[in-house]
Write a protein that binds this DNA or RNA. Structure first.
Lengths: 250, 250
DNA sequence: ATGTCCTATTCGTCATATAAATGGACATTA
DNA sequence: TAATGTCCATTTATATGACGAATAGGACAT
């Protein structure tokens, strides 16, 4: 049973009680706290966290909107199966990555990137306007400048990939900017361990040049290589689980 | 100014007042009803729809969780820019697709499918278990059986693609099952007009066979062809907007 | 021109009461 | 027995009223 105080809830995510409680409950759910017991009733939640029923109801409503729970009279609030959680909600993704970080999740996330980002790069090569091209180049320059490594280069890396996604002119691809940013930031302690890849500035430059020169095929291939390298590093760290996927990429 | 009655709200999405109001407000927002005026205050919303403040607050909280609005004291509730809407939330997607349906959105959505589904098919060829293979075949058989066309073949089509996504064993790809299902269902009146493609059973069979025979490359290529054909049909219906994308696919 | 303070407005939170829905226990009936 | 209807307890859903907290924007002083 999770318990907090209102003061802790306010500190939790920095906003108000409702958002603090949302955060606390979200984390508890994704870490499986309620897997083999029923989710508390409104009254219990209110008591456990020292807040009113309104606050618990609004927090639970937000969890409902993100697909984590569903509520029905008499039956109570029940945690939904993972398959109905909205993984592309940045809150959900952050909760998942912060608490239950696993190589599996990192691999699966990069498999997604491996599908999305090359296509986005190809579209950007066709459709990006001058501002977006400039943003891509700016991200690359920031990466070069931040050769000190650490947080700066991570933020520059994120800016680069976000700029490519935006440049695709496709709102569905652009949607991934928050997801990619959240996931990269949340997994920094991990990718740092797989050091050596994030500094692959030549690979990033290849992507940028292909996009600027309006060469979609080259842009797609270059971006594919970038993400595949990350996947290879992950597989190298845990080879037994990679299956034939790694072989297929080479 | 949107106005409804509680009875209408209940009918709206079939659940309760809160979800009905959520639906009404979501539709209103994505159709731009509040673009050049401020979003109503809690009190105004409650009055306009004949519900209590609790209901309006919980509906607005859900909109917040989906990224459509943000609320601050004194400033009121404001509609967020489209870029921060969660397009992979099935509610948001349905609201968007149900309003004036645009070829642009359909094209962009299928560009996303073109990135996702081939990779999912390749992963499914590597990782799907017996149950998942059976589900893929079952979807194919349902398509063959429903040669009458119409709604049945659409549902079978959806079942097939969902089965492939699930078979990828990747929760991020699996996440798209709801998105794909929602989008295909919402766009049926449109794809029906582009008749002739949804009955491409041989193409679907090629995907299924490649997956069952554990041939990821073939599965990827077959799925790519499937989605590319849809994209070609869209471009053919509105050639001036397709840019060089169509040429690039061939 | 700038900084300080005040105030009205709006969301945030709390408390309480009543309605609606539903699963189960129990009684009824064919 | 088995099917069906009735009632009850529990939990969410809704309504209402009150007060607190934060802040945008104006009034005012410097």
């Amino acid at each position: 049973m999770i318990e907090t105080t209102p003061a802790e809830l306010r500190l939790n995510l920095g906003r108000n009680l409702t958002h603090g409680l949302l955060d606390a409950l979200g984390r508890a759910i994704v870490t499986g706290q309620y897997d083999n017991g029923a989710f508390p009733t409104e009254a219990e939640l209110a008591k456990q966290h020292g807040v009113s029923r309104s606050v618990t109801r609004e927090a639970v409503k937000m969890l409902t909107a993100k697909g984590l729970v569903s509520a029905r009279p008499r039956q109570g609030t029940i945690v939904q199966p993972r398959s109905s959680w909205n993984l592309f909600d940045t809150d959900v993704l952050r909760w998942l990555l912060n608490r239950k970080f696993s190589l599996d999740l990192l691999r699966q996330f990069n498999q997604l990137r491996s599908a999305i980002e090359p296509e986005a790069a190809a579209l950007a090569a066709l459709l990006a306007d001058d501002n977006e091209l400039a943003a891509i180049n700016a991200g690359l320059e920031r990466m070069k400048a931040a050769e000190t490594g650490g947080e700066q280069i991570l933020e520059a890396d994120i800016a680069f990939h976000v700029a490519v996604l935006k440049g695709s002119k496709n709102p569905f691809f652009a949607q991934f900017q928050d997801v990619v940013a959240t996931a990269l930031r949340s997994s920094i302690q991990f990718t740092n361990r797989l050091k050596g890849h994030s500094a692959s500035i030549p690979d990033h430059a290849a992507v940028a040049h292909a996009i600027v020169k309006r060469q979609p095929e080259k842009a797609r291939a270059a971006m594919k290589k970038l993400v595949s390298d990350v996947l290879d590093l992950i597989d190298a760290a845990e080879p037994e689980k990679s299956g034939k996927a790694a072989a297929k990429r080479r």
